[in-house]
């Protein structure tokens, strides 16, 4: 079993959740999403995000619009749809449950 692969799998699982969270308060364009994810070390290579964004968009969780930029090519701004917001609320609950479960498991492990 490859440790890097396991790490990548773990990261991938929460990546969708992170993207939705980043977009929760404000619409953002792809490079902004990228820099947030990269600064928090959630993303190793940028390419990962593109199939993911397209998948989330096709699933109806995200929508996008093009906006002109003064300093470069037009930017693709992503926004959460209504379904996306509901989805995110649910993921938030799942995430905190999961976090507590993992905390509990690891704490019991260290007690022994």
């Amino acid at each position: 079993m490859n440790i890097d692969n396991t790490k990548a799998q773990m990261r991938k699982g929460v990546l969708e959740f992170c993207i939705l969270t980043i977009l929760a308060d404000k619409d953002k364009y792809t490079s902004e999403i990228l820099s947030t994810l990269k600064s928090s070390k959630m993303l190793v290579v940028e390419g990962t995000i593109y199939p993911l964004l397209t998948r989330l968009k096709n699933a109806g969780l995200l929508s996008y619009r093009w906006e002109e930029s003064t300093s470069g090519p037009p930017r693709k701004y992503y926004a959460l749809t209504e379904t996306g917001k509901l989805f995110l609320t649910e993921l938030n609950t799942t995430w905190s449950e999961l976090q507590q479960a993992v905390k509990k498991v690891t704490r019991e492990k260290t007690k022994k």
Binding site: V45, G47, T48, P51
Partner: peptide, 12 residues
């Protein structure tokens, strides 16, 4: 920066 396509295509 972008990575190799086979590194970021996911099986689903």
């Amino acid at each position: 920066t972008l990575g190799q396509p086979e590194d970021f295509i996911s099986e689903d």
